Simulated scan of single mutants.
Amino acid sequence: MNPDTRRPSLHVTALSLGAGAAARLSGWSAICPAGLSLIVDEEGDLKTGLLRVLAGETAADAGTVRWNDADNRAWPPAQYKDALFWRDPRAPWPEVSPAHWAQDLAARHPRWSAADWQAHGQGLGLTEHLHKEMFRLSAGSRRKVLLAAALASGAPLTLIDEPEAALDWASIRYLRAALADEAARSAKAGRVIVVAHHEPMPGVPWAQVLRLP
């Protein structure tokens, strides 16, 4: 089933990371509707692993993740990746500029918005850095590139990890305002955005806040 033919939904059922008494997450279930969902992991050691499972990058020890009523492991890889925006912010970056990377993303994501990419780049203070190679950018600037791309991608399922890490306060304020704007747009468009952070992010109208044990 093509992910654009129905209203997207993400269902997580009885998910476990780790087995037995050593399980880091056991029997966790959630439904993420259209709009913005926040996953709060105060200890900070679960959320990235959970997002990688939601993205189909790794497998859980137990449980299922269903996207549009189909197990995410059953999607053809290219089809699932077209519906998904996810990148671990700690992963090595390609030796290209943000502008070049954005061109590749625009070719992959049919709902990519060049206007949003430019607006978020400007709002996050990236304009002068867009044509520099990624390795020349600071950790904070690379995070900003990732955030601008995630929001501009229009991907039906968008996963964002630690959005405020390494950001200056002005960028944090902009990001929260951008997420607030995106909340209404996403709910209307049927876009599921899942954000994972170590603490609540005020000022954003979350569809739900899910706390990991």
Rank of each mutant, 00 (worst) to 15 (best):
M1H: 14
D4V: 00
R6E: 10
R6T: 13
R7V: 13
S9F: 09
L10S: 01
L17C: 07
L17P: 02
G20T: 08
A23P: 01
A23N: 07
A23S: 11
G27S: 11
W28N: 04
I31R: 08
C32L: 07
P33T: 14
P33F: 13
P33C: 13
A34G: 14
G35C: 06
L36W: 07
L36R: 06
S37M: 01
S37E: 01
V40P: 09
G44H: 12
D45Q: 11
L46S: 09
L46I: 11
K47S: 09
G49P: 00
L50K: 03
L50S: 07
L50M: 12
R52I: 05
V53P: 01
L54T: 03
L54D: 02
A55V: 11
G56L: 12
E57R: 10
A59G: 13
D61R: 05
D61A: 10
W67I: 14
A70E: 08
R73D: 13
R73A: 15
A74M: 06
A74D: 11
A78N: 14
K81I: 00
D82P: 00
F85H: 04
W86L: 09
D88Q: 08
D88K: 05
R90G: 15
A91T: 04
E95K: 07
P98E: 03
H100P: 00
H100A: 15
W101I: 00
A102G: 06
A102K: 02
P110Q: 03
W112T: 05
W112A: 05
A114T: 12
A114M: 10
Q118H: 15
H120R: 06
G121V: 10
Q122I: 08
L130M: 14
K132W: 07
K132I: 03
M134I: 00
G140M: 05
R143Y: 00
K144D: 02
V145L: 09
A149E: 06
L151W: 03
A152F: 00
S153C: 04
G154K: 10
P156H: 10
I160W: 09
A166P: 03
A166K: 09
I172H: 01
R173D: 11
R173Q: 07
R173W: 00
A177H: 14
A184L: 11
A184S: 13
R185E: 08
K188Q: 15
A196H: 10
E199S: 15
E199K: 15
P200S: 08
M201G: 00
M201S: 05
M201R: 03
P202M: 07
G203K: 04
A207K: 07
V209T: 09
P213F: 02
P213S: 01
